[in-house]
Design a binder for these strands. Structure first.
Length: 582
DNA sequence: GCCGTTTTCGGCCCGACTGTTTTCAGTCG
């Protein structure tokens, strides 16, 4: 307490995520510069370690433990220290002068990596997405060595795709920022109460803006305090009780400040969806009240509403969970007492998809297990990659057996906590599995996932998945569509055929809880449920911190209206093992 | 860049596909 840099120094302590971004940027710029690959990887590895660190890197630095982090040697420790003190590093600043930072977004275009981006820069002076698009439209790309008409067309299409998603912020970015901003506001004396609202609160996978609602006796002072937070690129626009601006790299952020007695109505309105709010307005009108931005009026008098539940109660409704506030029909359901019992975070008894340093994770088997136990779980399934994912150090039969032995030893040590010996076995291009049946048969839990050849046509990809689903050893299909939100489109697939095969064979489908994936999504999860397919939740964590991503999985499951009975991880370890196939 | 029952240098990250070529560099998972 009191140690953090105050406003008098004009510097807020860097969060782990911000520091990781700076390290990532150095990696990208070095790569664009043509630096040898190992240094680039060192920066990226350090970024990953910092991102997945279970404690503030600030504290690690203060206690002189930076060098103890894996992948952090003398050079990186010094740069991290400098970044924590000054907010940047001279090395990074120099790189930014040498290489146009806009080239980083050029690399977002599919098919354009560091070499091509650098080539486009040197040959055509491309420095960002705009100049790339202009050059492509002018037909100047096709004349560059190793490029041609086909790639020019593909790049133009890719630019459009990158653009299209440009306006939306992935939940993976928006939610941590929303929570951080809410925490900053909560510390201000002007603020009595603050909540995250908007699409973030409804766990939408992408959002237009981070929206916050804060209450206090003097809303104007809250708006003022909000505008003064460090992190806005330029001062946010302010109007009565409101402020909106762009935070950090440009994420749109909005605040509405109210009096405490108007907080409930504001929170419901700003949480949305719009259809939900409209439906509530209609319902109020139907009951002789008037609901609007100013609040709820009964007989011409403003009724105080300091919480959401109070508003719903006045409208004759039970509280409606934010995840259900979508098309407005949920209001009728609520009125009829037919709201579903939704999955709760506390229903989840274990994580069914994690990686360790046996493959491409950063934490050891024991570290992951202990982290899972301290989250209150009863069990954890270890599901590292298999053989063919060489770049992730995937496990072959021998190493898998070695890991199973290590798991057995760990179970002895951590009992009654259970570690399940599992695998995320690769589904190869023809639908066969990357490990022999005999090896899979020995495991407690088998996820099968596609990691390569993701652009197969619909027929081929469907057949490929059906073959994996038919395997008696496969318990779950992991991240079915392979999409990465804002980065990679889902693969072509006959969903109906897949769901039918899952239902018939008793194969579960995963809701991958990584906020970058959320795969299967809400719609597909709901369809699966309707077809009698069981779902599992797995974080796909590659470090201890990412075990917290389970919240995103639960949010998605709730949006899909799943209850505890439809999710495998609500079972005990014994029940789970008992209901495996075969 | 980091790291060391290969310990202060020499490894570390592999294989398939694609569009461009006429033998392969670059991208991706």
């Amino acid at each position: 307490m009191g140690q953090a840099a105050g406003p008098e120094q004009g510097l807020t302590p860097l969060t782990n995520l911000e520091l990781a971004d700076l390290l990532e940027e150095i990696g990208d710029l070095l790569e664009l510069k043509g630096d040898e690959g190992f240094r680039v990887r060192a920066y990226r590895r350090a970024a990953r370690v910092v991102r997945g660190l279970g404690e503030p890197v600030q504290r690690v630095a203060e206690e002189g433990r930076l060098r103890s982090l894996p992948g952090v040697g003398p050079a990186l420790a010094a740069k991290i220290q400098e970044m924590l003190t000054t907010g940047t590093s001279q090395y990074l600043e120099k790189l930014r002068e040498e290489i146009p930072p806009g080239l980083r977004e050029v690399m977002l275009v599919p098919g354009v990596g560091p070499r091509t981006a650098a080539l486009l820069h040197s040959e055509l002076g491309v420095a960002d997405l705009e100049s790339l698009e202009a050059a492509a439209r002018a037909g100047r790309l096709r004349s560059v060595p190793r490029l041609g008409l086909r790639r020019e067309e593909a790049i133009l299409e890719g630019v459009a795709r990158v653009r299209a998603r440009g306006g939306l912020v992935p939940l993976a970015v928006a939610r941590p920022l929303a929570l951080e901003l809410a925490a900053m506001l909560a510390r201000r004396s002007e603020v009595v109460r603050v909540e995250v609202a908007g699409s973030v609160r409804r766990w939408c996978e992408t959002v237009e803006a981070v929206v916050l609602v804060a209450a206090g006796p003097d809303p104007a002072r809250i708006v003022e305090a909000f505008g003064a937070l460090p992190g806005f690129r330029e001062p946010p626009e302010r109007s009565a009780g409101r402020a909106r601006g762009r935070w950090g790299a440009g994420v749109p952020v909005e605040l509405e400040a109210t009096l405490p007695e108007a907080f409930g109505v504001a929170l419901v309105r700003l949480t949305g969806s719009e259809a939900h709010w409209r439906r509530l307005e209609e319902r109020a009108q139907g009951r002789g009240m008037r609901l609007g931005p100013a609040g709820l009026c009964v007989d011409g008098r403003q009724v105080p509403c300091d919480g959401e539940d109070e508003l719903y109660r006045l409208l004759g409704l039970p509280p409606i969970p934010p995840e259900l506030r979508e098309n407005g029909h949920e209001v009728e359901e609520a009125a009829a007492g037919r709201l579903p019992r939704l999955l709760e975070p506390s229903d989840i008894r274990g994580d069914l998809h994690v990686h360790t340093d046996w493959s491409d994770g950063t934490a050891s088997l024991e570290e992951m297990a202990i982290a899972a136990r301290s989250r209150g779980y009863e069990y954890l399934a270890i599901t590292d990659h298999s053989r063919s994912l060489a770049f992730a150090r995937g496990l072959d039969v021998a190493r898998l057996r070695g890991q199973a032995e290590a798991v057995a030893a760990l179970n002895h040590k951590l009992a009654p906590f259970r570690v399940l010996a599992g695998i995320e076995v690769d589904i190869l291009a023809d639908g066969s599995l990357d490990l022999p049946d005999a090896a899979l048969a020995e495991l407690d839990f088998v996820i099968a996932s596609v990691h390569s050849r993701m652009r197969q046509d619909r027929v081929t990809m469907t057949a490929r998945l059906l073959r994996a689903i038919a395997s008696p050893h496969v318990d779950v299909i992991g991240h079915l569509t392979g999409r990465l939100i804002g980065e990679r489109e889902p693969c072509e697939l006959d969903h109906e055929a897949v769901l039918e095969a899952c239902a018939a064979s008793g194969t579960a489908l995963e809701i991958n809880a990584s906020p970058h994936r959320l795969d299967v999504d809400r719609c597909l999860a709901r369809q699966a449920r309707d077809r009698g397919v069981t779902l599992t939740l797995g974080t796909d964590a590659h470090d201890r911190v990412s075990l917290e991503d389970m919240a995103f999985g639960v949010g998605t499951a709730r949006r899909a209206r799943l209850g505890p009975g439809e999710v495998l991880n609500t079972l005990s370890a014994d029940e789970l093992l008992a209901c495996r196939k075969g």
